[in-house]
Structures are given as structure tokens and as C-alpha cells.
Design a binder for these strands. Structure first.
Length: 319
DNA sequence: CGTCTTTGACCAGCGC
DNA sequence: GCGCTGGTCAAAGACG
């Protein structure tokens, strides 16, 4: 890991006041880590929720992870893909109800994935499993065995992933979406099991994995995979409607950069590419590659990145 | 009764 | 080929 230094800034609204940026290489691949600390997060600016919804983001669970969770005080996030291009963002929120918050966003996606990967992964994934006739869906009997046989020859493609490490007592963070647990596995080198959840909305293939860090049992690692193809459910237990003020559940112009997605959306280049490559509103999962391209192509200068990511009007350098 | 969780089994991928 | 591990399935049970 080659530390490229830190970048401190204030986020108008008081959400974040400094970001660290680390860059890490994995044999030709590069990781980027941003550490963001906040000294005065104003709940009214609940960045992540707003961010997620304002950008039609699908990793709704992040919103809680980023401070809406009553127990959440530390959040990391990461996106996994093929290559290891990662971006981590730590967000401290020590004034959020007295919680010390830290967020790490790790973006890790294949450079070669480009737009096609993100867009097609869902299909590829489904074609392997969901797309095939399944016993559970149509009463068919072929079931997984036959399907998986067909999967041979197809290189498995993964959905872009976005993982957050949340300091929380609760494993399952309420994020506004409905999830059905479909599996649980013991994790190697960890005493804590990993739970697998799937969005219960029909035709939505978003999945998430939740596991507790064995290194720090107080943290929960939530990994989202895929992109919701539906709006945030409004009628659900502990629904987002109850969790978040209406303003947070409705799209907002990017006037209030949230974090990290909205922060990223603030990246001129990123935003520009997004606009060019895909309709607005389908942001991270489907259109993640532009960001990774950004990360790779621009090599994310440690100091300039945030300036690119966040308009200067939202940044104030710490003395 | 519908929804969700639990849990053992199954399968693919990977390293040896 | 074998064993390990991650991921998924689906039946059974729990719950409201």
C-alpha cells in the first residue's frame, strides 16, 4: 500500500470534514482508499440515504450504514468486481448523535468489465441460474443440477459489488429494501457465519451478503451485488418511509453531494461519463465501470481526486 | 395463510 | 481426481 497522503475538507452541511486517500497496488492493479472523517454530521443531511435515492442508487442498505442505523457508527464500503481497483472511504461521524462514524468505500471492479459487464452480468448470472427453468419457480424438476451443468463453458461474471463495513450490533441493516435470506455459510477463518440475502422484489436480482468481521466483531460487512430494478419499496416493515424523511426518499438534484455515491457523482469526469454512457439514475451497479475507468485512467491523484469528486463549493480545506 | 428464516445438501471453481 | 470453499437451492419450520 502506497499512501498517497490525505486530503482534508469540509462538506457543507457538516457531513464530512476530511478524507484520506490511500492507493494500493496488487500486481499491476490499484486500490484506492479514501478515509473520510466528519466532525459534525447533520442528520438532516443524511448523506448516504439521500445519495442513494437521489441517484437511484440501489445499494440502499448503505444509507443505514452511513448513520441511519442507530447502532451504526462505522461504515466501510467496497465494490468488488474483477480486477482490484478499489476505493475506500472512511467517514467519521463523531457528532452524529455522539456516534463516531467511519466509512470506507472500497470500489473494486474490473477494468475490463466496462459497461458491458455491468449491464450483462445480471443476465449472465441469471442465465446461469435464475434464467433457467427452475423447480422452485415453475414447478419444473430440472432444478439446479441441470442448470449448473449448462453453466459450464460460461465464464462466471459477477455483478459489481459494493461492500460496506458497518460498525453495528445488528447484522441485518435496514436499508429500505426487502430481503429474503436464502443461505448462511460458515466463513473460513471466521467464527461468524455469512448470510446471503436476495431482494424479494420480483425480477430483482440484487443480492447482499452480510458477515461480521472476525477481526472486529463490532463491524458488519455488507456486500451488495447487482442493481435494483425497482423503486424503493414503500410498504414494508420498518420501511424506508419510516426510516427516512420524505426528502430522503425522493430524488434530489445533485445539489447536495452525499457520500460516497453522490460524491462520486460530483466528479466531473465521472458524471460526464455517466451522462454519456447511460441514462441518469442507473448509477452504481450498472454504470460502475466509468468510475473505475476514471480511477484507473486518471490514477486518482491523491489531492486532486476529491476536488474532482466534490465541487469546490462543497469542500473547505482544513487549516 | 403468506412471508421469512433455518439448515442440510448440492454444485462450481480453484488449488494441490 | 480430490478436497476445500463459496454460493445457492429448497424443504421444513417459525412467525405474525
Amino acid at each position: 500500500m502506497s499512501d498517497h497522503g490525505f486530503r482534508d475538507f469540509y462538506y457543507h452541511g457538516g457531513a464530512f470534514n476530511n478524507i484520506d486517500h490511500d492507493q494500493q497496488s496488487y500486481g499491476g492493479e490499484t486500490d484506492h482508499m479514501y478515509r473520510v472523517s466528519s466532525s459534525s454530521i447533520d442528520p438532516s443531511y443524511m448523506s448516504f440515504t439521500d445519495c442513494l435515492h437521489s441517484t437511484s442508487m440501489d445499494y440502499g442498505s448503505l444509507e443505514k450504514a452511513f448513520g441511519l442505523s442507530p447502532t451504526s457508527s462505522e461504515v466501510f464500503s467496497s465494490v468488488e468486481g474483477g480486477n482490484r481497483t478499489m476505493m475506500k472511504q472512511h467517514v467519521g461521524a463523531d457528532e452524529l448523535g455522539g456516534n463516531n462514524g467511519e466509512v470506507t468505500a472500497t470500489l473494486n471492479s474490473s477494468v475490463s468489465s466496462s459497461s458491458s459487464e455491468a449491464g450483462c452480468e445480471e443476465d449472465s448470472d441469471k442465465s446461469k441460474k435464475d434464467g433457467q427453468p427452475k423447480g422452485s419457480d415453475d414447478g419444473g424438476e430440472s432444478s439446479k443440477k441441470g442448470n449448473k451443468a449448462k453453466m459450464k463453458g460460461e465464464k462466471k461474471q459477477r455483478e459489481p459489488r459494493f461492500a460496506f463495513v458497518t460498525k453495528s450490533e445488528v447484522d441485518q441493516l435496514e436499508d429500505g429494501y426487502r430481503w429474503r435470506k436464502y443461505g448462511q455459510k460458515a466463513v473460513k477463518n471466521s467464527p461468524y457465519p455469512r448470510s446471503y440475502y436476495r431482494c424479494t422484489t420480483q425480477k430483482c436480482t440484487v443480492k447482499k451478503r452480510v458477515e461480521r468481521s472476525f477481526q472486529d466483531p463490532s463491524t458488519v460487512i455488507t456486500t451488495y451485488e447487482g442493481q435494483h430494478n425497482h423503486p424503493l419499496p414503500t410498504t414494508l416493515r420498518g420501511s424506508a418511509a419510516g426510516l427516512f424523511p420524505p426528502s430522503m426518499l425522493t430524488p434530489s438534484p445533485l445539489g447536495r453531494p452525499s457520500f460516497p455515491h453522490e460524491l462520486l457523482m460530483q466528479m466531473p469526469n465521472y458524471h460526464h461519463q455517466m451522462n454519456n454512457q447511460a441514462p441518469a439514475g442507473s448509477m452504481f451497479a450498472e454504470n460502475f465501470s466509468p468510475f473505475h475507468q476514471y480511477v484507473h485512467q486518471h490514477q486518482v491523484p491523491d489531492y486532486g481526486l476529491l476536488q474532482d469528486m466534490v465541487p469546490s463549493t462543497f469542500l473547505k480545506h482544513e487549516p
